[in-house]
Amino acid sequence: MSLEDVHCKTEFSKGDAGAKMTAKDMLKITVNLVVIYIIGGLILALVYATTSPIMFKKGEEEKQAALKTMMPEADTISAIYQITDDSIKSVRNEGVPDDVITQLKNLSKEWFIGKDKFLGFLQEKIGTEKSNQYESIFLKSFKISDWYPHKKHAEYYVAQKCAEVKVKKTTDEKTGEVKEEKECIGPQDIGYIAEGFGKGYSSYINLLVSVDKDFTVKKISILHHAETPGLGDEIEKDYFLKRFENKSVDNLVVVKGETKDKVEAISGATISSRAVTEDAVRNGVKMLKEKLSGGVKDGSHS
């Protein structure tokens, strides 16, 4: 018996069912598969459509909560606003009328730290009514403290301490409610906070990093990641995050084994450690240094 015979025999016994399959059977199977997959896809789409806005909102809330802990000594943590030619264009696309656009074009191009200050400036220059009407569009379009690590939207902030905080109490005459308005007098920049993304072992690691005015790292807080449990997820732990304290950009380097001035990797999770240190944190600090070096100059904002 030749080898070929053996081959033919096994082929025959194995492919019994396959040989009988007609075009109709194939069509049936295909339709079967497609229908079940479409149903599955629809269910997933439905679940995603209902959960994703809530997921996004909760994520945003958590970020805001984490932001407050990044610099406990700061009185305000604010985004930066500036009127630029590009953002005026995007405001126009949002449907803001031409007369407001012309007013905006004549305004100064200085920086404003904090949305209250920026809105105050707008109210003064273009009138309370108009600035209130388009408030959300203005805030979205004129915010310049955005950056895009790994093509993802991230933000950065300025942390300020006030020389004095004045609390204005106003009583609403109709309801009798007492409202407290805090006014910050003599704000001083004490540090900066950046949101960053790092490409880890199995996910993008999303975090916040705060630095002082010399751009040395103060604190890190991991917002989201999907690294391996038991190995990569150690990046969340305090003992690892403490290794970043008081490190400058040059020392944000991962080292295997003990080190004094660099960052020691987590054993078994070098990729995740690198992603946090050399991707997310280092790039975040570098970006802050590039954009805000020398501080946001006093006088460039009112």
């Binding site: 079940i36 269910i43 959960t51 997921m55």
Partner: peptide, 20 residues
Amino acid sequence: IFMMVIAGYVSIIDMTMAAW
């Protein structure tokens, strides 16, 4: 089909938990 059922459940549970 089994693959889809498993992956589907994992995704659904993941998303539902992330939201609620």
